[in-house]
Design a protein around this nucleic acid. Structure first.
Lengths: 355, 355
DNA sequence: TTGTAGGCGTTATCAC
DNA sequence: GTGATAACGCCTACAA
């Protein structure tokens, strides 16, 4: 009996440093009930008598007890935490989405761990690994493209996930979003309808980015159907930054003959294009029509207000959270949810100039 | 020996549902070492032999082991998680700060739990309570004003915290930021120096918001020294939203005689003011000078570019994270860190019109 | 409805 | 440098 020996040798009970915080057992003692009852009173009050509930409640407030979620997570095998990986939160479309996710999760008692991928799928994968270490119960991603290991890791651990901001009816990933291809196609058709034939495109960096790729292809489709394409040299990529967009726009404005219309992949790019056009003395929309994408705050307030396409960012965030919560409760929501987008015609577009 | 009895009764070892994931003990078995050695190989590799390190490493990758941070948190009494409460992440100044915080924390192996207060101190307090339940090791807040219970809760649990975006040399809270009063005072002096005497102010909602209050007082100070004040009816509050700012600006433009200069509490408000002025045909800066605050992306790109005051948002975020990390490592960084701001004179300000 | 007690996956203490 | 093994604070199957 080596155990006895050990006990005999060091009769003083071993204690780890710094366990000073009030624990559930302290509440139990104060309330004169068992720890199980305290746990139940806190988590499933309907399973406990009125007396116990009141006593526990009183003890909790008196002692200022705060639950220890690491211990809960360990024992219950659920962390009540969701992870989200977004490209950046510095662009209002994403931050609006994240805020919506957070609000919905908060209602359900979940916390949100946010990580940024900086538009890199490799970094996205690393971030998901970190989120898994953190024991998230579910994951929210952006877009259709992901490293194959990512889904594998998630599926192996049976961690539900939802991709937001894109839509793919038959795709491998659950998603809630809109059809980027169709949306941009409708914008291109709108320009064609205005009589434009010389059309250019200011895109984001397409590497790793399905939304950009879909939007470029979406713009091209109706052009091709009309026997057209972007003007030669008329497809330029730029980071999502007004200053960079202006630089890219410089190149587009140097094309001869100049395009009469420009499709931008988002509103930041459109804003940069608009500023640069104005600085170069190019009249918008008289000489050049410009379209945005997203409908962020400033789109409607610049002069002229930007014609753009409203993207349902908060609805997507809320929808993604909702779908994840349903999965977490064992339900089977639809694999893909399609949200609508609308073209908002404002002041930066007009009929193609004559000639 | 009741234990023996129990064992005899149910000889099959009890197993909780779903403990399917690979645990550290699995790695230990695979590597042929003890769990203690695995733990050491992972956390303090310098304390184990090369052999053990290699064997553990191999087993980890072969099994696809991922650490269980709840268990780590429980055993080590540190969650390696920091909480941050910001008013909103939908405004680029805050999202830039949050991104900077996140980057620095990531380097140090900490995760960031983000919560929003929506500019309410009450909600901020609730969010901190939730963060404490989550077992955060430290907290980052915004501003000087907080509910007294907040600091008490944090101090009771010895959770370090830092307030960001404001500066108070002798204040009760550790902080890293700049002096809102002084910054806005310098802007007011700048306008006085341009000869303006009829000055108005477009402020944010001042309730619960020390930054707004400090900036209003800061603007007033040099005016008062010059025997002036805002023009009657010339102090208006608005939410941080371009549309709302335009509404507020309408009232300011209706004042007679009209102010010749307007101090805005941030760039969003300045942008709204600028748009509204233009819509009303008021020439900026010929008839009216407008100043912003923050220097967000669009400030330099609108036409005319906005005169504003650069706020070191990423530096504050990084600095706050840094200071917290130091506290977590048992160091004692300065209680208050002051960061510089600079006026950036651009196109929305000019000399006061004659007469 | 309530209590008992084992186990969740790690870390850290102790002994070697 | 390494191994054995008590905690860590809570949840929950089971028994009463």
């Amino acid at each position: 009996m080596p155990l006895m020996r050990a006990r005999t040798r060091s009769p003083i009970r071993r204690r780890r440093a710094g366990s000073n915080a009030i624990a559930l057992s302290d509440v139990a003692r104060a309330a004169g009930v068992s720890t199980a009852s305290v746990s139940r009173a806190l988590n499933t009050p309907e399973l406990v008598s009125e007396n116990v509930r009141a006593a526990v409640q009183a003890a909790v407030t008196r002692l200022g007890y705060i639950r220890h979620s690491a211990a809960r997570a360990l024992a219950s095998r659920r962390s009540m935490t969701i992870g989200a990986v977004v490209p950046t939160i510095a662009y209002s479309i994403f931050s609006a989405g994240v805020e919506a996710i957070e609000r919905r999760l908060e209602e359900a008692g979940y916390a949100l761990l946010i990580a940024t991928s900086d538009y890199s799928l490799e970094r996205e994968l690393r971030q998901v690994r970190i989120l898994l270490e953190r024991g998230v119960d579910g994951v929210i991603l952006v877009g259709r493209y992901h490293r194959p290991e990512l889904a594998r890791m998630l599926q192996e651990r049976a961690i539900p996930y939802v991709c937001q901001g894109a839509y793919e009816a038959e795709g491998p990933h659950p998603c809630v979003g809109f059809d980027n291809h169709a949306a941009m196609a409708s914008m291109a058709e709108y320009l064609l309808g205005l009589g434009h034939r010389r059309i250019a495109m200011l895109a984001g960096i397409s590497a790793d980015n399905d939304r950009v790729i879909d939007r470029i292809a979406g713009a091209r489709a109706p052009l091709n159907r009309a026997g057209l394409d972007f003007v030669p040299g008329g497809l330029v990529e730029s980071r999502y930054d007004v200053a960079e967009a202006r630089l890219a726009m410089k190149r587009l404005l140097a094309l001869r003959p100049r395009p009469t219309a420009l499709l931008c992949v988002n509103d930041v790019l459109a804003l940069g294009a608009l500023f640069e056009a104005r600085a170069e003395g190019v009249a918008v929309p008289a000489e050049l029509s410009i379209t945005g994408f997203d409908d962020f705050d400033f789109a409607r307030n610049v002069e002229p207000p930007i014609t753009t396409l409203r993207v349902p960012a908060p609805e997507m965030g809320r929808g993604a959270a909702e779908q994840l919560l349903q999965r977490l409760m064992g339900q089977s929501p639809p694999q893909a949810t399609l949200l609508p987008t609308t073209i908002i015609a404002r002041g930066t577009t007009g009929p193609a100039p004559a000639g």
